[in-house]
Design a protein around this nucleic acid. Structure first.
Lengths: 201, 201
DNA sequence: AGAAATGTGAGCAAGTCGTTCACATTTTCT
DNA sequence: AGAAAATGTGAACGACTTGCTCACATTTCT
């Protein structure tokens, strides 16, 4: 950030700028993301934007940083300990759906389209590591052992599968579709659970 | 097309243009897709490109048309009749991986980023319908009945899940990873198969 | 040879867009 | 209240992008 907002008024300005940016990224993708458009949608002059963000990239970084933090926080609240695969899957899907309900396209755009000064894609980024080991832990829990490399592959697959279903639902504007959510829960449950537990879902 | 290529030479020219376009879309996304760059990568003058494509959009449409035709053709060769879920899943994954090995990012860019004169996203497009009913048929086969609406939801979920896993693998340049493929097969098998068949995978 | 098909690429015309800056308004501090 | 600091404004620059044309060369067909 170029300048730290000190008064409440300027903090609100920064907030609306970040939100407008997220909205545009989600709705129009990286192509539609221009500083002037963000400022316009935020109802703020372009000059104000550049008071707090030195350049365009720093704004994307701010949006990304906030979004990833939120995602992790939401997910971390769902634990696999002591609940059945079906329950865990249901809670997880609910959380992921909720996380995608405000800016449905944001996650994909941030990961696939938008460039960044840091290196988010690369597997060693803090976000990737935390995200993956969360899933690996869940997998290992239901396999009743400590996480190992094989669990990490399974974690990738289940995480990417969920990602795909949610992302495509978002494209069709159907993240809230209960039928889709039920089937997704079933998919996760079957993959994580033991054969004996399948019928109850 | 503005003009139909009549000689072999010009047909080759059109071919290299389409391939160069696919390469750029796959590697750089819609942002990097400029007519001048496509012509340059194809080793052809920009003028030649405009001999056969009236404008930029018609070139994307040509690329998309070819890609979707190829995808359908590859998939249609894998049938669910008479094979176990595990076998079907294995063949399907192999086919999808093969289809993504030349231009790993192309599919996603065509669906998510690139605009089109026609309406591919909309659920009534010929491609979407054929694609979905293929999966619905497979689901219904293993449920031992005619396809019904519930199977279409399951079809969407499994198709989008595969899509997500492949797409994320492509981003990491790991579509060929055998471990990932094994797990993906397992995911599909469990989802399609019956409980009794799970242990054998 | 003549005609048709094909290929060339410099360059135009029309944008686009990140960013600045001189100035206005509001809030805080003394 | 008055000065100083913080915040907000938006026209406009200037550097760059890019889809596309056209006058002309080269190759192939008849």
């Amino acid at each position: 950030m170029r300048k730290e907002p000190r008064q409440a008024r300027s903090r609100a300005t920064v907030e609306t700028i970040v939100q407008a940016g997220a909205r545009i990224l989600s709705d129009e993708g990286w192509v539609g993301f221009t500083t002037n458009r963000v400022a316009e949608l935020a109802g703020v002059s372009i000059g104000s934007l550049y008071q707090y963000f030195p350049d365009k990239l720093s704004l994307v970084d701010a949006i990304r940083h906030r979004h990833l933090d939120d995602s992790i926080a939401v997910m971390r609240r769902i634990r696999a300990d002591g609940v059945s695969p079906a329950e865990f899957a249901a809670q997880l899907v609910q959380a992921v759906v909720a996380a995608h309900s405000v800016y449905p396209g944001l996650h994909r755009v941030l990961l696939d389209e938008a460039p960044s000064s840091e290196g988010y894609r690369n597997p060693s980024s803090a976000f990737e590591i935390e995200y993956l080991s969360y899933y690996a832990e869940a997998v290992a829990t239901y396999r009743k052992r400590q996480p190992n490399p094989a669990d990490h592959v399974a974690a990738r697959v289940i995480s990417d599968a969920i990602d795909g279903v949610i992302h495509n639902a978002a494209r069709r504007g159907a993240v809230a579709d209960p039928a889709m959510q039920r089937e997704l829960v079933r998919l996760i449950t079957l993959y994580l659970g033991e054969p004996g537990q399948i019928r109850e879902s």
